[in-house]
Design a protein around this nucleic acid. Structure first.
Lengths: 333, 333
DNA sequence: CTGAAAGCGCTTACAG
DNA sequence: CTGAAAGCGCTTACAG
């Protein structure tokens, strides 16, 4: 395995561009950064732009960060949990929108028992966003590294809703099973500890909806979808009078459906299950899984709006549209 | 959504540590970086370490990068393709090993039609590693951004094997079906264009093995696992005398198995299928999928070794062990 | 409208 | 063994 050695030639700097364009270094910066308050004549501006283009100038990001005190990097810390299918679209959209505003989005999955130095030490992000609150040591570490903004805001408890775990989805799941006539529901989640806070958030949303619909209190059933022994769990639930399962995501729903089939139950007559996220497995599973689809593109834009508002003193976002999930009914409900 | 505003207090710098420890700025650097060739007396060293600890000093990464010309960041560019399940462990292991050597691993999924500026512009990584060769514009962009090492090496064609798409897995798939008595095989992959190069690599490895075993030439069958109409495809294959399907990954294998069940075929008697990666779906699918398991931890270490060798002038890796995939036989073969 | 210059916080030869 | 100082390549008041 060999690795390329670029031409030894010095990297092009702003000095080179200034010389090529016949202006001062400062002017190069003003033109390239569109600095407001500077009135650069049109032809000077064009000369600089052309020189920069011709030389293939790329500003040194470390120098820029050091001088300006801002890295224009947004660090998104994701939970140690398999990325959900739709998350990819979400992130693509968010990072495109942020790029247009001159920011780079870096995603980072932190291992649960991470002994490694956290990524914010080496990236100096302007903002660190997490899906769940950060531990006090993490917050201290960020502050020591000069991170200026952190979300969720340490100290305050904020609705996780704001970022990734919408509660509208779980509510919709419960509503759907309720409409289909189910009165005894259970909430199913995976046994993995990683996702605990996200599970808790979704479970709570589902529970509240069940309560307000006058249903029996929702209990949380743990499903180990890597073992084949879910059938017993399902059988036990069925014997206890459960007819509907609200699943944390489609993987869990698939495990439940698979266990139900193995236990000899008919779906959705004996038991109904609804997943969440509309991942590929939902459509292809036998029986095909009912689920909740999320408008990830809209969510991504909303995330970008949120980021820009907190990093800059931006006005309100482009549009205050609410992102509503939709029901996808298939064979399991 | 509010965002925290850290204490306005100035960030701790090396000057503060030097003052606190009663030494010069330079000495602080020497101690903290373990600069070789400098002989620091033990108690000076400890004084500096304690002062740094007490003040919660974190070096400014931008300043360090600018001064040293190295960011100690490794950028791994992943294809625009759902991250395979086991990849997560792989990356965790690699990033832990790199962290111990003082490097940070940043992963980055590039969108196919990405109009956004690439991440190497804002991160100034010392090394950019991709799973597939970079386009000439990408390479130019990296060079202009001061990236010193690129892999795969532009210009040379290198075995993709070196990084992520091992060819031992596909070979094992073919061997297994061959041993089970199958002579007419087909290679199944998803229709998504994103993974084309990885599919091509795995397909090629499988094809070569089939040829060397004296089997009929392998054809590539495209499976759309988001539609329910795979049954027809499967039926057609079966009628054409195919008895074994080598799947690109477990998702594809699941789609094939699901189609086979729908088409009324018995597995593995009428049709056998083997997946790749041993993702969670493989164990939980009905029927449970035979697949290939990869030792991702060992692979992760090997990746870290490779990175360190190319970024520094490191000696050969810890051990030149070959990472062999293993067969996991379940109900579909 | 444009330029000279200080400063961001490090690293690293170079003197002592 | 330790320190003074130049330099990395930008940004940004501040003068002209």
């Amino acid at each position: 395995m060999t690795v390329s050695e670029p031409a030894a030639g010095r990297r092009v700097t702003a000095v080179d561009v200034a010389r090529e364009a016949g202006v001062s270094r400062a002017t190069v910066g003003f033109v390239l950064n569109n600095t407001r308050g500077q009135t650069i004549p049109k032809d000077t501006r064009e000369r600089v732009l052309r020189a920069s283009e011709r030389l293939g100038y790329r500003p040194n990001s470390a120098a820029r960060t050091l001088a300006s005190g801002r890295s224009r990097i947004i660090l998104l810390v994701l939970p140690d949990w398999p990325i959900e299918f739709r998350m990819r679209n979400y992130l693509d959209e968010a990072s495109l929108a942020l790029d247009r505003a001159g920011y780079s989005l870096v995603t980072y999955t932190r291992h649960a028992d991470q002994t490694a130095r956290p990524l914010w030490e080496s990236l100096s992000p302007d903002l660190v966003v997490g899906t769940i609150p950060f531990s006090p040591p993490d917050v201290d570490s960020m502050l020591a590294c000069g991170v200026r903004k952190i979300h969720p805001n340490p100290g305050r408890t904020e609705p996780i809703d704001a970022s990734l775990a919408l509660s509208a989805g779980p509510r919709l799941q419960v509503d759907h099973l309720h409409e289909r006539g189910h009165r005894n529901l259970v909430y199913a989640a995976a046994v993995e500890a990683h996702a605990s806070s996200m599970i808790a958030a979704r479970f709570q949303a589902a529970s509240e909806r069940a309560r307000s619909l006058g249903l029996a209190a929702l209990t949380l059933e743990e499903i180990n979808y890597r073992s084949a022994s879910t059938d017993e769990t399902i059988r036990r639930m069925f014997d206890a009078g459960i007819t509907g399962v609200v699943a944390f995501n489609d993987d869990v729903a698939a495990a439940v459906a698979s266990g139900a089939v193995r236990a000899g139950l008919r779906m959705p007559d004996d038991l109904a299950v609804i997943g969440h996220d509309d991942s590929p497995i939902a459509a292809m599973f036998v029986p095909a899984l009912s689920t909740i689809r999320i408008d990830t593109v809209a969510l991504g834009r909303r995330f970008a709006d949120f980021v820009l508002r907190s990093v800059e003193q931006r006005p309100a976002p482009t549009s205050r549209t609410v992102v509503e999930p939709t029901l996808v009914q298939r064979e399991t409900s």
